[in-house]
């Protein structure tokens, strides 16, 4: 009696969420794997033709896809470095016991709250008008011009804007890390005559490793999955030069109507993201044991 009652409560508490979760995540995931082995244009009346591994093998010859994979990797590496350097610098400044540091922290975090789509549009204008103006005024028109019309610089523009969005976010993680460092350790190194740079590189940085690992991988996976900023800032252009992975998948499915091929790309995308994230979990766990 008691156990039957217990089971009833268990179902009552968990079933609603499990039903929604299964409908939205689990079933589509399985259907997605199935679709990846078919050729289909997305029109319900047209037949789905089983092609086996063909979608996956043809990915290796899809130049636009390979190009996109390469750009995404490059973008991810540059963004991860830029975001973490800027974010850590912000965190160091904001925790240096200044009266204005609270105000500054509030302001520096702000861009993260504005959605990626809207950020991209804001920066479109900044590149178009303000960068050009800067170029005119300073005479440095090789550096300051509308980056978005140049294939190479458009990618740097994406890195720039994504850094602007994410730096405040990782700053928060680094602040938590810095506050966890005991003051005595830093003071002791000061008394021992360590220079500010030595204090940072020999004392602060090693103690900051857990925070560093977390924000490295958070930025790694979010840079790799970038879509919104990509869409609104460059739209993948000029001439597909900034078409990242996520956008390439979207365009293959909904743009070109290659549902099977696009889904195969989406599965490959999943495998890469999973590999990145699992490596993160593995490294973080290992660190925790050592600490």
């Amino acid at each position: 009696m008691a156990s039957k009652n217990k089971r009833r409560w268990y179902v009552l508490f968990t079933a609603p969420l499990l039903l929604i979760f299964t409908t939205v995540v689990l079933i589509p995931f399985l259907i997605g794997i199935y679709y990846a082995f078919f050729e289909w244009d997305g029109i319900a009346a047209n037949p789905k033709v089983f092609v086996g591994m063909e979608n996956f093998t043809s990915l290796l010859q899809d130049e636009r896809f390979l190009e996109s994979a390469w750009i995404t990797t490059l973008f991810t590496v540059l963004s991860v470095i830029a975001i973490n350097v800027v974010g850590l610098a912000f965190a160091l400044l904001v925790t240096s016991k200044l009266r204005t540091s609270n105000v500054a922290r509030t302001m520096l975090f702000m861009p993260y709250l504005i959605g990626g789509l809207i950020l991209g549009y804001i920066w479109q204008f900044v590149f178009l008008d303000v960068f050009a103006l800067f170029g005119e005024v300073t005479g440095l028109d090789k550096v300051f011009f509308n980056w978005l019309i140049d294939p190479q610089f458009a990618m740097y523009g994406l890195v720039f804007v994504f850094t602007w969005q994410m730096a405040g976010y990782v700053m928060i993680i680094y602040i938590a890390g810095l506050q966890g460092i005991p003051n005595e350790v830093v003071e002791a190194s000061k008394i021992d005559g360590a220079s500010p740079w030595q204090r940072f590189s020999r004392v602060t940085l090693p103690l900051l490793m857990p925070a560093l690992t977390i924000s490295l991988f958070l930025t790694l996976s979010s840079a790799f999955k970038i879509y919104d900023v990509n869409l609104s800032l460059t739209g993948g252009g000029p001439a597909n030069s900034t078409e990242m992975f996520a956008m390439n998948i979207y365009n293959e499915i909904f743009g070109s109507g290659n549902y099977g091929l696009g889904q195969a790309k989406a599965i490959v995308f999943f495998l890469i993201v999973a590999a990145i994230t699992l490596t993160q979990v593995y490294i973080t766990k290992k660190r925790e044991v050592e600490m």
């Binding site: 995931f29 999955k225 998948i249």
Partner: peptide
């Protein structure tokens, strides 16, 4: 671990 792009079409 599943990115949204993997689910969007089948969903």
């Amino acid at each position: 671990l599943i990115p949204f792009q993997t689910l969007m079409m089948p969903l």
